[in-house]
């Protein structure tokens, strides 16, 4: 059988993902994460009596901690699985990716296990994050001046 003909049989019986539903879930959950972040930031700012800019660092650390803790407790992957990009795109996704890799490779030692593999998933985020920061920084310099 020709590959193209086989592919058409495969396409016929392979179900399609409901992208609209996934996007909607991600939109709602991602929005709620934003609300949670805002609430945390306001609370930190109010109770610790610090500027909002500093409170945002506290908020990020809190969200990272929650993401890591829930990953270790073993149920965050189920949240992520359901919410998809709603939890992957915020900082929780980054924490989850690093924490799950650390858990996975802890048996293989501190250096060759955790050290070498902790960025297995998150490494590309950092590489392209730094790269795009460089490109956009350069663009800003050229277009808007120093």
């Amino acid at each position: 059988m020709e590959k193209r003909k086989y592919q058409s049989i495969v396409n016929k019986y392979t179900p399609k993902e409901n992208r609209l539903y996934n996007a909607l879930v991600a939109f709602v959950v991602g929005g709620l994460m934003g609300v949670l972040g805002e609430v945390l930031m306001e609370l930190y700012s109010y109770f610790l009596n610090i500027p909002v800019k500093e409170a945002s660092v506290f908020m990020i650390v809190t969200l990272i901690f929650i993401g890591c803790l829930f990953t270790c407790l073993g149920f965050f992957d189920k949240f992520v699985h359901f919410c998809k990009c709603g939890l992957i795109i915020p900082i929780t996704g980054f924490a989850h990716a690093m924490q799950s890799a650390a858990l996975e490779y802890r048996k293989e030692g501190l250096v060759l296990g955790i050290g070498a593999n902790i960025f297995k998933l998150a490494g590309s985020v950092i590489v392209f994050g730094v790269f795009s920061a460089y490109v956009f920084g350069l663009l800003r310099l050229i277009l808007m001046g120093a």
Partner: peptide, 16 residues
């Protein structure tokens, strides 16, 4: 662990 992602990583997979 060997073929995909760390076990505790909840990256989405297609239903098929």
């Amino acid at each position: 662990k060997q073929f995909r992602y760390p076990v505790e990583y909840g990256g989405p997979k297609p239903c098929y």
